[in-house]
């Protein structure tokens, strides 16, 4: 006689479910309200809901100072991302492939800016730039963003590069590949997804940064600065529309970066100890 064994059921499933829902509500309800307001046919930034309109989106799209700020933000984020990712690759390489004096300190020092409060970074860089006699501009903002973008890029790329089996690089060299070819043919495919996801993260961080930017920006505003400035004077659902767009785009970018990371891990997961058959 065979007894059918049923999986044991949790005794109070509703308890965990409702607790989880509560947490999610706490996290996402404010954002959902903002999204609702952006479609609300009412000139004040609050509920109740009076009907759906795309008016605020239209207004936002026609607002020249918002468009200018968006352009600035994209420029700053792109430049900061390129710099942070490029430097991150170089630093990760130095820390993984070579042994040198002060290597561990360098690694800690590279990660430190994440832990520093933005306000400290901002004040410090402001003082430094004025000492150097540099005029504040988008360039100084870019440099400020590189400071916290670099640790993010470095960390992601470093942890991938550390898993890279060096025998692959040796095999490529052994088969005739010069160092540059070894990088292009073997190392880059292995770290590519980590580099992309690092770049996307650095981009989102830079795109909505406010604190450091406040200290380092000159006459040109970035988009978050523009929004922040308006909140004190002209509060309109136009802001909600812009905020909704930003969250949709950043959300998509972050999800995309996570997806890329997961994709990259699958083939590179177990070279060496491969399937036993």
């Amino acid at each position: 006689m065979i007894t059918q064994i049923e999986p044991r059921q949790p005794t109070k499933p509703w308890l965990l479910i409702s607790w989880s829902l509560l947490i999610y509500a706490f996290l996402y309800l404010p954002v959902l309200v903002l999204v609702a307001i952006s479609f609300n046919d009412s000139p004040i930034l609050s509920l109740p809901f009076r009907g759906i309109t795309l008016n605020w989106y239209r207004q936002a799209a026609q607002d020249s100072s918002l468009r200018l700020a968006l352009g600035n933000s994209l420029q700053v984020a792109a430049a900061a991302t390129l710099l942070a990712t490029g430097l991150g690759i170089l630093a990760a390489f130095a820390c993984c492939r070579y042994r040198f004096w002060g290597q561990r300190s360098l690694r800690v020092a590279l990660n430190l800016p994440i832990l520093l409060p933005g306000i400290v970074t901002g004040v410090a860089m402001l003082a430094y730039f004025s000492d150097l006699g540099w005029e504040l501009s988008l360039l100084t903002v870019i440099l400020g963003h590189v400071v916290f973008g670099l640790p993010v890029a470095f960390g992601t790329i470093y942890s991938r590069l550390r898993q890279f089996p060096n025998s692959l690089a040796e095999a490529a060299a052994d088969l005739g590949a010069a160092p540059v070819q070894v990088f292009a043919d073997v190392i880059w495919p292995y770290i590519r997804s980590a580099v992309f996801s690092a770049a996307l993260l650095a981009f989102t961080l830079s795109f909505d940064e406010v604190v450091v930017t406040i200290f380092l920006t000159g006459r040109d505003n970035t988009l978050p600065m523009e929004i922040w400035g308006r909140l004190r004077t002209r509060i309109t659902p136009e802001i909600a529309a812009v905020a909704t767009l930003i969250s949709v785009v950043s959300g998509a970018v972050v999800l995309c970066s996570q997806w890329i990371t997961a994709q990259g891990k699958a083939p590179g997961k177990a070279p060496g100890k491969a399937a036993k058959l």
Partner: peptide
């Protein structure tokens, strides 16, 4: 060289 873990390129 034939390496101990073969070092085949996974990609």
């Amino acid at each position: 060289t034939v390496f101990q873990n073969y070092a085949l390129f996974p990609h």
